[in-house]
Simulated scan of single mutants.
Amino acid sequence: MEIQDAREHMSIVIRPYEDSDAAQTLVVFTSAVIETASADYTAAQYRHGLSPSGAM
């Protein structure tokens, strides 16, 4: 399937955030910090941001 064809068949639903989204949101956030932006944070920010009480 060509990229353009795939886009024609995709649908996106935007809805309000729900409490049940929390676990997957944490996965996305953690992956973004660890895999994508780890070079942009100091070790202290990294530890604090990934701790249960931390917020970046």
Results as ranks from 00 to 15, higher is better:
Gly54Gln: 13
Ser31Cys: 02
Ala43Ile: 06
Val13Met: 05
Phe29Pro: 02
Pro16Glu: 02
Gln45Met: 12
Thr42Ile: 10
Met56Asn: 01
Glu8Trp: 03
Gly54Ser: 14
Ala39Lys: 10
Glu2Gln: 15
Glu18Lys: 01
Ala6Phe: 05
Gln24Lys: 08
Pro52Ile: 14
Ala23Asp: 11
Ser51Ile: 12
Ile12Met: 05
Met56Asp: 05
Ile34Val: 11
Ser53Met: 15
Asp21Ser: 12
Met1Ser: 13
Pro52Trp: 10
Ile14Lys: 04
Ala37Gln: 05
Tyr17Phe: 14
Leu50Arg: 06
Thr36Leu: 09
Ala32Gln: 07
Phe29Ser: 09
Val27Asp: 03
Ala23Met: 04
Ile12Asp: 05
Glu18Thr: 06
Phe29Leu: 15
Ile34Ser: 00
Ala44Asn: 04
Ala23Val: 11
Glu8Arg: 06
Val28Pro: 03
Ala22Lys: 05
Gly54Glu: 14
Ile34Tyr: 01
Tyr46Ile: 08
His48Gln: 09
Val27Glu: 09
Tyr41Val: 02
Ala22Asn: 01
Arg15Cys: 03
Asp19Glu: 13
Arg47Pro: 02
Val27Pro: 02
Asp40Trp: 08
Tyr46Val: 02
Leu26Val: 06
Ala22His: 02
Ser38His: 13
Ser53Thr: 15
Ile14Pro: 04
Ala55Asp: 06
Gln4Met: 05
Val33Tyr: 07
Ile12Thr: 13
Tyr17Gln: 02
Thr30Leu: 00
Asp21Gly: 06
Arg15Pro: 01
Ser38Lys: 09
Glu18Leu: 07
Phe29Gln: 13
Ala32Gly: 09
Asp19Trp: 08
